[in-house]
C-alpha cells in the first residue's frame, strides 16, 4: 500500500465550481435560519405601549413566504447546477471535502 498522495493544491475549474456549489448548499440552511429568525426583532403588541406599532399580519405572511420561496428556488437551482456539473467519474455524495 502506498501512502495517500497529498491533495492537489489547485483544482481544475469544473471541480472548483462544484466545491463552491456544495459550499453554497451547506450555507443555504444557515441563511434560512438567519432570515427566519429576523421576526424576533419585530415589535409585538406585548412589548408595551412605548414600543413601535406591531407589524401588520399580511406583511409578516408575505415576508415568511417570500423567504420560503427564495430558499426553495435557491435549493432547486443549486441542485440543478450540481447535477449539471456532475463529473461522471466523481460521485457527488462521495466527495466530502
Amino acid at each position: 500500500m502506498t501512502e495517500p498522495s497529498p491533495p492537489p493544491v489547485f483544482l481544475e475549474r469544473r471541480s472548483y465550481r462544484r466545491r463552491r456549489i456544495m459550499d453554497a448548499l451547506r450555507l443555504l440552511p444557515v441563511a434560512g435560519v438567519l432570515l427566519w429568525l429576523l421576526p424576533l426583532f419585530w415589535p409585538t403588541a406585548a412589548d408595551g405601549p412605548d414600543a413601535p406599532a406591531p407589524l401588520a399580519m399580511s406583511d409578516a405572511v408575505v415576508y415568511v413566504f417570500f423567504v420560503w420561496v427564495v430558499l426553495i428556488l435557491a435549493g432547486a437551482a443549486l441542485w440543478w447546477a450540481l447535477r449539471a456539473s456532475a463529473d461522471p467519474t466523481e460521485g457527488i455524495v462521495r466527495d466530502d471535502r
Binding site: P43, A46, P54, M57, S58, D59
Partner: peptide, 11 residues
C-alpha cells in the same frame, strides 16, 4: 387579514 383578530404580529 389585517383587520381580523389576528391582524397584528403577536409572537
Amino acid at each position: 387579514i389585517d383587520t381580523s383578530p389576528i391582524g397584528q404580529w403577536n409572537m
